[in-house]
Simulated assay, not measured.
Amino acid sequence: MSDTAEEVTRAELRHGLRIATLLVAMAVVFGLGLAQLLRYMDRYETPLTQWIAFAALGAVLAGEATLLGLGRSWGRLRGPAIAIVLGASALSYVTLPDGRTSTGVDWIFGAANWVGIVVLLDRPLRTAAAFLVAHELTALLHLLLLDDPSRADLARFSTGSVTVVGFPLCVAVVAAVMRGLSAAAATSRREIERVRLAEAVAAESHGRRQQRLAELSATTIPLLEGLADGSLRPEDPVVQRRCAIEAARMRRLFAEADDVADPLLHELRHCIDVADRKGVVVELDTRGQWPEPPVAVRRDLTEAVLIVLATTVSRARVTVMGEAGLVSVSVVADCAETGMPSPAAPGVQVEALTNDDMVWMEARWQPTSRSPR
Rank of each mutant, 00 (worst) to 15 (best):
R269M: 11
V164Y: 01
G160I: 02
G325Y: 01
P346G: 05
T46M: 10
L141R: 08
A176V: 08
A310K: 02
Q50I: 03
D98N: 11
R249W: 06
V281C: 10
L197C: 08
G87W: 07
A172E: 05
E204P: 01
P341L: 07
A183K: 07
V119F: 02
M361L: 14
S92W: 01
P234K: 03
L154F: 08
R209L: 11
Q366R: 12
A316V: 04
L121R: 01
V28D: 02
A25G: 03
A352V: 10
P47E: 00
L144N: 03
F131I: 06
S217Y: 07
M250L: 15
A130G: 06
M250N: 06
W290C: 04
M361H: 05
E225Y: 10
A363I: 03
E292N: 14
A324E: 15
E7Q: 08
D273M: 10
H142D: 14
L132P: 04
E7L: 05
P124M: 09
S188P: 05
E193L: 13
V171A: 06
V348P: 00
Q211G: 03
A59V: 11
V119I: 00
L125V: 07
A333W: 05
R190G: 04
E362G: 04
R233H: 14
V320A: 03
E303M: 07
R249Y: 12
R364C: 06
N113E: 09
Y93R: 13
P237T: 10
V331D: 01
L86P: 01
A214D: 12
A336I: 12
G288R: 04
A186W: 00
L121P: 01
V174E: 08
D98L: 15
P294N: 08
R194H: 09
V118G: 01
P293T: 14
C170A: 12
G322M: 07
V239T: 15
V350E: 04
T219K: 07
H206N: 12
V29G: 00
T354H: 11
G33F: 06
R370M: 09
L353K: 10
S92F: 02
A186P: 03
L353C: 12
R39V: 01
V115W: 00
D334G: 14
